[in-house]
């Protein structure tokens, strides 16, 4: 009898452990899948890196409440963003980059890092001029809207001039984003006049490349060191065919004037001919 009871108890335990265990594994997998934030969803300023964010954000919406521009919203069930977490879509309402950063101040848990005191230091994402085929500036028009609305104009977005070879006489004014200044606020994406924005804010990790750790940019190293770091070369002796030399200052390969029976002035040759060769 006691044996049967024990057996039943163990069976019940096993069933429960298995059932809840399967549920738990499913839940874990779901959570991991949901942790991949879609590229168009941007976290509020000061959000700690996404994996940590999901350990810190309690989904209370206090940041949403204190956003004066209704930029932020909490993800609802059915959206691709982790349920209940705050985000914004730049094309709908971008971040207005309030100087007092009320969303960060409102966060009770530190999911939005209070270490962010200057909104210019925010890195919500990175604007990328993602489609040069439709960007009006790249078609040769003077659009510049993204450049003009940028809160960090001439720092985060500059206009680079380039010759328009198609018309032959015009200049491209190409918007160029600089990652050292861009906060990812999304005002450029919001303002882009196209049907579908040609400039988009993407997550930093999507937008940025990364040099291998062993790469050194020579001219930067030289500037940092205050001089060339490699032993200055002796003038290089090239093994060139006779009559050639190499000029290091930019002219490159030079063919020496070959000795010729003819003078530069044809008359001289004729005179010489009179004297009889």
């Amino acid at each position: 009898m006691a044996n049967e009871d024990r057996r039943k108890f163990l069976a019940d335990m096993a069933r429960m452990a298995f059932g809840v265990g399967v549920f738990g594994v499913g839940l874990g997998m779901y959570a991991q899948r949901a942790a991949s934030l879609p590229a168009q969803a941007i976290r509020p300023p000061g959000a700690i890196p996404e994996e940590q964010f999901l350990s810190a954000c309690v989904r209370c919406g206090l940041c949403v409440r204190d956003c004066p521009y209704n930029t932020l919203k909490l993800a609802e069930l059915g959206e691709d963003v982790a349920l209940g977490t705050p985000y914004f879509t730049a094309r709908d309402i971008p971040c207005e980059m309030c100087e007092d950063i009320p969303c960060v101040a409102a966060c009770p848990t530190g999911a939005l890092d209070k270490g962010l005191t200057d909104i210019d230091d925010a890195r919500m994402g990175l604007a990328v001029l993602i489609d040069q085929e439709t960007c009006l500036a790249f078609l040769g028009l003077r659009c510049e809207v993204c450049y003009q609305v940028c809160p960090l104009i001439d720092k985060a977005i500059t206009l680079d001039r380039d010759h328009n070879e198609r018309s032959g006489k015009h200049t491209f004014f190409k918007p160029v984003v600089h990652s050292d200044a861009c906060t990812g606020c999304g005002k450029c994406e919001k303002a882009c006049v196209l049907e579908e924005a040609a400039i988009k804010v993407l997550p930093q990790k999507v937008a940025k490349g990364a040099l291998g750790a062993h790469y050194r940019v020579g001219w930067e190293e030289k500037q940092r060191a205050g001089g060339a770091l490699v032993t200055p070369d002796k003038t290089h002796e090239y093994n060139l065919p006779e009559g050639y030399r190499y000029e290091h200052e930019g002219r490159g390969l030079i063919q020496e004037a070959a000795p010729t029976p003819f003078d530069a002035d044809p008359l001289e040759t004729l005179k010489r001919g009179k004297e009889g060769i």
């Binding site: 839940l27 874990g28 779901y30 959570a31 991991q32 949901a34 942790a35 994996e51 940590q52 999901l54 350990s55 954000c57 309690v58 989904r59 919406g61 949403v64 919203k73 909490l74 993800a75 609802e76 069930l77 059915g78 959206e79 982790a82 349920l83 209940g84």
Partner: peptide, 28 residues
Amino acid sequence: AAFGVIIWEYVNPVSMLQRGLIFGLGAA
């Protein structure tokens, strides 16, 4: 602890309903 996320809040119907009624229900 294993996944390093507040895991029940991914599916918690209590939060879904309460938060949903205040902030937007979605498919909850």
